[in-house]
């Protein structure tokens, strides 16, 4: 980035970044019975990385995440589809959901369903997609990898 970075924005983003990621995880796990879910969580996580991009450009973005965006996309798809397949393997219909509850002593009873794993997949796909968008379309200072001569 050749332009000067705004110190206020930079600091705010640094403060907010992890909080946003935490919020996105909360939304992901709360999603079964409450507002939230994989899509909403993924969007919030994308916002966190989007803010990084707004504050520091694509170099800041690439510094804040080292795994390629395509891996997020692929792993997410894999998660979502395999969740469907697990029910197939256990003799149920494709994508049939199951509910588990576990007693974690101090933390109380935790109830979750296999939909959560599907949601994790959606979360990763949304996040991967947004990262890919930021990287591909938001390439900074003329280093757009897509740049072609007319």
């Amino acid at each position: 980035m050749t332009q000067r970075r705004s110190v206020i924005l930079d600091l705010c983003v640094q403060a907010e970044f992890h909080t946003l990621l935490l919020l996105s995880l909360y939304l992901l796990f709360a999603g079964h019975n409450q507002p939230g879910g994989g899509f909403a969580g993924g969007l919030v996580a994308s916002c966190a990385f989007g803010l990084r991009y707004v504050a520091g450009g694509s170099s800041a973005l690439s510094r804040s995440i080292s795994i390629p965006a395509t891996t997020f996309l692929g792993v997410g798809m894999l998660f979502a589809i395999l969740t469907g397949c697990v029910s197939l393997l256990t003799g149920h219909e494709f994508l049939e959901s199951a509910i588990f509850s576990a007693d974690l002593m101090v933390l109380g009873t935790v109830k979750t369903s296999s939909v959560l794993f599907f949601d994790i997949g959606v979360y990763l796909v949304v996040l991967g997609m947004s990262l890919l968008l930021l990287q591909q379309l938001g390439g900074a200072d003329g280093t757009d990898p897509d740049e072609v001569q007319p």
Binding site: L137, V148, P150
Partner: peptide, 12 residues
């Protein structure tokens, strides 16, 4: 939109 941007890059 991405394609439209590409089109603009190519043809101005």
């Amino acid at each position: 939109l991405a394609i439209a941007y590409r089109s603009w890059v190519l043809t101005q």
